[in-house]
Design a binder for these strands. Structure first.
Lengths: 295, 295
DNA sequence: CACACTTACGATATTCGTAAGGATT
DNA sequence: AATCCTTACGAATATCGTAAGTGTG
């Protein structure tokens, strides 16, 4: 029994005419006749009873008809579903991104993506760097945006941009007037840091300890928003990924370039190595690269 | 997308090896490779990602896999179901028969049928002659056993046997000692008749009225059993299809051949003309012919 | 170099369409 | 005579298997 044969049966059963059915199938009448015949032979009995002047279903044909309708419909739906997935008319992508990225560039990329592919469902997970890696490893998400990890065992890393960290200081602070700052300028102020565990926090601690000893953390939060507010209230200073510049200024804090030394870290896309990513994930990746390049 | 292609995909997706899958499918590796390739082309994207050393599913392949499993299972089940119907391993027949037949020969035929085809569900409707015809006409049953009707518009009639009516008299009656009886012998006794409407009743009335005027009905029932009991209790006499002989004698009545004139009527199978009957119905018909011939 | 998938190509099978045949209205 | 399905047959198409090719561990 083949799909063609079943379609042939369905067409004849519905029109009760080989002639009409053959037109509908874009097939010659004899070819249709043969198809039905071989179908009947493969099943071991007649499905249709043809007198020269009329066509009718046998009881067995009546048994098959509703089932055949369902099988063909299922078949066509499946084909359509897959095509939609490939043409990005349907599908889902899950992406995880570290908070600084999720709050800045990701929405821009998502907007561009959604404009191109409005029917793709995108799930965003705004989690700390380590969890992004974990979610990619556990197949929880297809894509991740992270600070370049030291070990990317089993992961493919695609750099998006180089993140240069910036100092965040109260608008009223004397530090706000400088063109650029050094670590030594900041360490005299109370420091507001991201709570551990956090890749940004670790990066900062390592950067500081190399030149000035321990980071003097006065306050901690795991929310960038909270840090921004604390700074703008004059509670202290902080250092955040440059991506957060706009967000911080919107919260009333001032951002100043941080040099001596610069704190830099590549940010990029990760996905499981060895597996291909879906067409939808590929399209989203491209949009992310596009958006980060533009900036 | 063809069945073969989907089976090929399923085999590869489950074993994650073209080599193993090709063995399982009894197909050469290159043929399998081609099948998958054309499937992917027809759907518009890759389902499997092959490095030279390993095979894995793409996201789209993962979407298809569970659906493919279901489609193939449905397909195979349907094929199996139809084959079972044709080989009489599965199916149902509905048959309607007039009471005298349903109570006598039909069970014998059913026994023989069930011995041959234990998995066919048979529904029996024990109804009066007119209802048998009606049920066949309304597609309520495929087969009917009736006294040969005058009009068989749209019906195919297959004679089973000639029913010769017999007189039923109380064992204690003087009539019980005769070898055969005539209508005139019976009409002196109270007559117990089947209730109208009944083909047997009509047949008797017509037969009598041609020679002796009206049938002097003293009692009526629509149950043969009741008539048998009434006769055996000495309430009167009756005339029933010869098929009921055993049943009547079992109820304590005596049966005597009825001549002068003989009342005869062909009993046969009917089914809707123009439609074929199911394999199961055909087999049951054959058993009925076999059983009625044997008698 | 051994293994696993792909490409190339000739052979085989299926399927198709045209033409002729048979039956019914 | 017209219509509708079936059979017959040569042609196009698809599928298959063998053999050679390619890339990886």
């Amino acid at each position: 029994m083949s799909i063609k044969q079943l379609r042939a049966f369905l067409a004849v059963a519905q029109s009760l005419s080989f002639a009409q059915a053959s037109q509908h199938l874009h097939l010659s009448q004899p070819a249709l006749s043969l198809a039905i015949k071989t179908l009947e032979e493969s099943l071991g009995g007649a499905l249709l009873v043809r007198t020269t002047r009329s066509v009718a279903l046998t009881r067995e044909g009546e048994v098959l008809l509703p089932i055949a309708r369902r099988l063909i419909a299922d078949w066509d739906n499946t084909e359509e579903l897959l095509r939609q997935h490939f043409t990005l008319k349907l599908g889902r992508v899950a992406i995880a991104a570290l908070p600084s990225f999720a709050a800045s560039l990701l929405p821009v990329a998502l907007k561009a993506f959604r404009d191109c592919h409005p029917d793709i469902n995108v799930t965003v997970h705004d989690v700390v760097n380590e969890q992004v890696v974990e979610m990619v490893r556990n197949h929880r998400v297809e894509l991740g945006v992270v600070l370049e990890p030291e070990s990317l065992e089993g992961l493919d890393f695609t750099p998006l941009y180089l993140d240069r960290f910036i100092a965040v200081v109260p608008a009223a602070s004397r530090l706000a007037s400088y063109e650029e700052l050094q670590w030594s300028d900041l360490l005299s102020e109370p420091f507001i840091a991201l709570q551990r565990p956090s890749a940004v926090r670790t990066l900062l601690e390592n950067s500081v300890s190399a030149h000035h000893g321990r980071l003097p953390v006065a306050f901690e939060s795991h929310q960038l928003v909270t840090i921004g507010r604390m700074v703008s209230q004059g509670l202290g200073v902080s250092v955040v990924p440059s991506l957060c510049l706009q967000q911080m200024e919107a919260l009333g804090a001032r951002c100043v370039a941080l040099n001596q030394p610069r704190v830099e870290q590549r940010v990029g896309l990760i996905h499981l190595a060895g597996t291909t990513i879906s067409a939808a994930a590929k399209a989203l990746s491209e949009k992310l690269i596009e958006v980060t390049d533009k900036r």
